[in-house]
Simulated assay, not measured.
Amino acid sequence: MTVSVREVAASAGVSVGTVSNVMNRPDKVAPQTVERVLAAIEALGFVRNDAARQLRAGRSRSIGLVVLDAGNPFFTDLARGAERRAAEQGFSVLIGNSDEDANREAAYLDLFEEQRVYGVLITPLGDATARLERLRERGTPTVLVDREAGNARFSSVAVDDHVGGRLAADHLVSLGRRRLAFVGGPLAIRQVADRLAGAREAVAGHADATVEVFETESLSVDQGRAAGERILARPAAERPDAVFAANDLLAMGLLQALLGTGSVRVPDDIALVGYDDIAFASAGVVPLTSVRQPSERIGYTAMDLLLREAAGGAGFEHERVLFTPEIALRESTLGRRA
């Protein structure tokens, strides 16, 4: 049975307003009264209805975060950083997994708007500008995460994926690899397209080097394994001698497929580079060379921008934060080191 504020007030011998002050502004209430009200709350098992209180106030203390794939450790780390910054200011984070599905993304944005969240962080699947503009017009601050804003009306926090793609391909070419393959998709995802563009730019400086694209349906281990099987189906002389995967999950699937037959050696026959440098990248049978993103820092910074925008109101100047990636070199390209 739900206990009401009136019952707490009656048990403590105070007014409903005093109970409200104890819960929201205890500094305005005498210490002895605070103790009496808290004792009544504990004895009766009262639980405050924060949802109703927040809706009456017009805005909740929750912030919505929409990510492309909650199963990807990169987004887990990003969410951890966002939650850490939110908790510092007394906010909670509601996470929605679009699972690379535009309809699910739209459903989460609708849900967060209905719940009157304090703001929204989002890694959009495609061009969600029009939908996000409507959120902003209705008073919900929005920040793009792991995606550069192409619109001055939005703040964004991202990594320069074009540079990241160049780093990966430059490294492979420096090792003497010339038949590069890029595995990733859908190419409609901006981050994937930018990583491919960077790799192509790096290879363009070498007349004898090429990049072949193996587009995938998603950025998953299963899709990486399927791409690996497509590569293995070719005669050895027609296979790429290096693969750049758009993320580490794809790279892990590729590694499973390539090593599974025992006929391909990594990196001797095919060198492999991933992207994100998730914790598992260094723990595989063949530790993975990967382009590193500061995932927790991205989430923390995006949340900080959102909170500052909400506090600054119409006068807030939107910011675009762009981190520079690094490459973590391991055995999947360098081989075993003594």
Rank of each mutant, 00 (worst) to 15 (best):
A227K: 04
G228Q: 10
G228K: 04
G228H: 09
G228L: 01
G228C: 05
E229G: 12
R230K: 05
I231H: 13
I231F: 11
I231M: 09
I231Y: 10
L232W: 15
L232D: 15
A233C: 01
A233P: 06
A233H: 09
A233K: 09
A233Y: 07
A233N: 10
P235F: 05
P235Q: 05
P235A: 06
A236Q: 14
A237W: 10
R239M: 10
R239Q: 11
R239C: 13
F244D: 01
A245D: 13
A246V: 03
A246S: 12
A246D: 06
A246T: 07
N247S: 08
L249K: 04
L250N: 07
A251W: 01
A251F: 07
M252A: 10
G253E: 09
G253K: 09
G253I: 01
G253C: 04
L254I: 09
L255N: 02
L255S: 04
Q256L: 07
Q256D: 14
L258K: 03
G260H: 07
T261G: 11
G262F: 02
S263E: 15
V264K: 13
V264G: 14
R265H: 09
V266H: 15
P267K: 11
D268F: 06
D269H: 14
I270F: 00
I270E: 00
A271F: 07
A271C: 03
L272R: 10
L272Y: 12
V273D: 04
V273P: 11
V273E: 00
G274E: 09
G274Y: 11
D276Y: 05
D276S: 06
D277N: 14
A281L: 11
S282L: 08
S282W: 06
A283F: 15
A283V: 10
G284N: 12
G284W: 14
V285T: 13
V286N: 08
V286R: 08
P287G: 14
L288T: 05
T289C: 01
S290V: 06
S290I: 02
R292C: 01
R292M: 00
R292Q: 06
P294Y: 04
S295H: 12
E296Q: 15
R297N: 03
R297M: 02
I298Y: 09
I298R: 00
Y300F: 13
Y300P: 04
T301P: 05
T301N: 08
A302F: 14
A302P: 03
A302V: 11
M303L: 15
D304R: 14
D304C: 12
L305I: 12
L305Q: 12
L305A: 06
L307N: 00
E309T: 10
A310M: 03
A311N: 06
G312Y: 03
G312M: 03
G312R: 02
G313E: 00
A314D: 12
G315I: 00
G315M: 03
F316W: 15
F316C: 03
F316Y: 15
E317L: 11
E317G: 11
H318S: 08
E319C: 10
E319K: 15
V321M: 04
V321K: 07
V321D: 01
L322Y: 05
T324R: 14
T324F: 08
T324C: 01
P325F: 05
E326M: 04
E326K: 02
E326A: 01
E326V: 02
I327H: 03
I327T: 08
A328S: 10
A328R: 13
A328V: 09
L329V: 15
L329C: 11
L329K: 15
L329I: 15
E331L: 00
S332F: 06
S332D: 01
